[in-house]
Structures are given as structure tokens and as C-alpha cells.
């Protein structure tokens, strides 16, 4: 909650790092953290969602293979897709948050080409016209 405080526009890097450490320390960390982050990313508060995306990106680089395996699953990718899709939360999500999610997903297709589910999800979004270029 501290790391994604919507009332503070700047990133609280100390707090984000503490969160990553907690994820690494707790046995359930890598499986629980993606769910917590997905919930925040789906927040109607733009600033909270943007902060949560920063925490997500930081965790992907700092929280090890198990966390990585979880975010590469449809179970997590679907939660990001819901924010983009007009059939779910896309109509009321902010353009800024949707653009940021698209950028994160695209970067993952580049950095993790071996993750076929990420590629499938991104290609589906392009096919459905939800992701343009």
C-alpha cells in the first residue's frame, strides 16, 4: 500500500525495494505478489495503478524465477488484459495506464522471447485491435 500510495506522485523506491525483499523472503511471496499487484494495477485510481506497474517491473527484475514464472502465466496476463479490454475494465481505465501496460507487455515479448504465453497474449491483443502499433 505504501509503495503504491496514490497521493504521492513520485516513486517511493525505498518502499518498492522493501516490497521486493519481502517477496523474496516469504515462501508464498512469488505466488502472492502478482495477485496483489494485479489488484492494484486494476485500481480506478490512475496514480495507484501506475505505481503498481513500477513495482511490477522492479519485481520482474529482482524477485527471481518463481515470480517470473507466475507473471508469465495467463492467470496473471489475463488480469492485465482485463484493464485493456473494453469487454472488462478497458472503457473506464485511463489511457496512461493502458499505454503503460501495453509497453510492459511488449517489453516482455522482447526480453522473454521464450515465454510463449506472453507472446500469445500480445498477439491476441493485436489481432483484436486492442493494441495498435
Amino acid at each position: 500500500d505504501q509503495a503504491t500510495d496514490p497521493s504521492i506522485p513520485e516513486e517511493n523506491w525505498e518502499c518498492i525495494q522493501r516490497f521486493c525483499e519481502q517477496v523474496n523472503a516469504a515462501t508464498e511471496g512469488p505466488s502472492l505478489a502478482p495477485r496483489l499487484l494485479a489488484h492494484k494495477i486494476q485500481s480506478p485510481q490512475e496514480m495507484e495503478a501506475l505505481h503498481a506497474l513500477t513495482v511490477l517491473e522492479t519485481c520482474v527484475n529482482n524477485c527471481g524465477q518463481r515470480f517470473h514464472n507466475e507473471i508469465a502465466k495467463f492467470r496473471f496476463l489475463n488480469e492485465l488484459i482485463k484493464v485493456l479490454s473494453p469487454k472488462y475494465y478497458g472503457t473506464w481505465s485511463s489511457e496512461k495506464v493502458k499505454l503503460r501496460i501495453t509497453e510492459v507487455l511488449f517489453s516482455w515479448t522482447v526480453w522473454f522471447p521464450q515465454e510463449v504465453k506472453i507472446r500469445d497474449a500480445y498477439q491476441m491483443l493485436k489481432k483484436q485491435g486492442i493494441v495498435k502499433e
Binding site: 515462501t27 508464498e28 505466488s31 518463481r66 514464472n69 502465466k73 495467463f74 492467470r75 496476463l77 489475463n78 488484459i81 482485463k82 485493456l84 479490454s85 473494453p86 469487454k87 472488462y88 504465453k117 500469445d120 497474449a121 491476441m124 491483443l125 483484436q128 486492442i130
Partner: peptide, 15 residues
């Protein structure tokens, strides 16, 4: 508890 290699998942959302 979640086994170390938990590869349970769901299908891709159809939108």
C-alpha cells in the same frame, strides 16, 4: 502449499 514447480494456469482470456 504451492509446490516449487507450480505450473497450474488458466486459459487466455478471450476478449
Amino acid at each position: 502449499t504451492v509446490s516449487f514447480h507450480d505450473d497450474s494456469d488458466e486459459d487466455l482470456l478471450n476478449v
